[in-house]
Design a protein around this nucleic acid. Structure first.
Lengths: 229, 229
DNA sequence: TGGAAAAAATGACCAAAATCATATTTCAAA
DNA sequence: TTTGAAATATGATTTTGGTCATTTTTTCCA
């Protein structure tokens, strides 16, 4: 169970930070950040920011999971990314200087810190490693999104589900995948009913195991061969 | 008709550069770049770089048009972007330090210059305006690609065609859109036959005018209303 | 812990768009 | 200018996956 008070989380001991984009910070920078950030506890289904609003800083996930999605014309969500401990969200729109095109919402209870825009930009100005790390990260995400687009355009729902489960396996690591059928459908880009039917197929084919809503992957190789590549 | 020799193109008088990411360069930087870059004339359907190969620098389009695409499993292209005069291509993968995930190929004869990786990175190190411009550009493209993904997932082919024609109107400006039906289908993410049928509909509805392969947009408003938003 | 509400599951049906086959037009090279 | 290949166009058919209706299960919380 997470700490539910708004207790301060210390950057220098934050497990996620070291392997994140902020891993390159020197002690002084970490201390400064630690003094200037705000820490918050989020319940499940709380939003960090909304599509259309204006970025004021970046969010660092200490613990928890956040879905990043867009709402289409009929209100249906399209999940673009799922971020977890150690990841930062909100900096992409901050740089672009246009309002958020996506919404960020917790998938589970989470501890998330907030660093103001000016503080973050100052760190970037004075830290070339951080700067280059961010440029590299943005570029890699662009490549990932190109893949995402091509998959959407050319693959069947079954193939996309296999692909998505592989991505989710990376995110959830050893834990079983714990997403609502609707969120999963909105990540794959299909109707919830279609998704449920395909999950049933995968279950019958011995690719996954399902316990209530939680999905465990049994046969990763088969998943790869369905996803193609 | 373009200059077909490999004659040098002068950066300081390059019309595209001023409004591009390289518009912030001082005279010294422009001169240095001018001395170190390579200029090339490309015929129609020549590639600048191939998916899987390793980036060695960036390409600046002086004149012409370039399609950026991925090849799906069945070899079908998915066009991700169409770049024109003043745009740079190839820098996204260069930063990510992974091989190209996309191929870049001219859609028409083009004059394109090449700046080596080290030269470009040096410019970025010493020029914060360029650096920030690139970060902003990468972030904006991420936002665009989120839209692209949501469109792919949630819109009908008809809606996506309308959306794509609006994008192409921006790219071709006053000129009629001059793409093969196959390229257009590969941008929209549909089969060529479906695309042709929908173009016929649009023609009959008085939205576009078609002269052999060239498409002119007559009713932009209707296109917007079909695209939704 | 009971009961309402939400989520998941299933079935029947339908629509959008892909595929396959073939005809017609356009274009570029001889 | 002819001619053959490539691009465009059209028709018939099939498939995928979406929609709507309903049932069953799970979750939440009063």
């Amino acid at each position: 169970m997470l700490e539910k008070s708004h207790k301060h989380i210390t950057c220098s001991t934050c497990a996620g930070r070291k392997s994140s984009l902020l891993g390159s910070l020197c002690q002084d920078e970490v201390d400064h950040m630690n003094d200037h950030k705000a820490c918050n506890y989020y319940k499940k289904h709380q939003s960090l920011f909304l599509e259309g609003s204006f970025p004021r800083g970046v969010f660092c996930i200490n613990e928890g999971m956040v879905k990043i999605f867009q709402r289409g014309d009929e209100g249906k969500e399209q999940i673009i990314h799922i971020a977890k401990s150690g990841e930062m969200v909100g900096f992409r729109s901050m740089f672009s200087e246009i309002p958020y095109k996506v919404t960020a919402e917790t998938l589970e209870e989470s501890n998330i810190c907030f660093i103001g825009k000016d503080d973050f930009l100052n760190m970037m100005d004075s830290n070339p490693v951080l700067r280059n790390g961010i440029i590299k990260e943005l570029s890699r995400e662009l490549a990932d999104r190109a893949d995402f687009i091509t998959n959407m355009a050319q693959k069947s729902v079954r193939e996309r589900l296999a692909f998505t489960l592989i991505i989710l396996l990376d995110i959830y690591e050893k834990e079983p995948i714990n997403l609502s059928r609707e969120d999963l459908a909105n990540f794959v880009g299909t109707a919830t009913e279609t998704l449920i039917r395909l999950l049933k197929d995968f279950k019958e084919e011995g690719i996954i195991e399902v316990h209530t809503r939680k999905i465990s992957i049994i046969n990763k190789e088969k998943l790869f061969s369905i996803a193609g590549k």
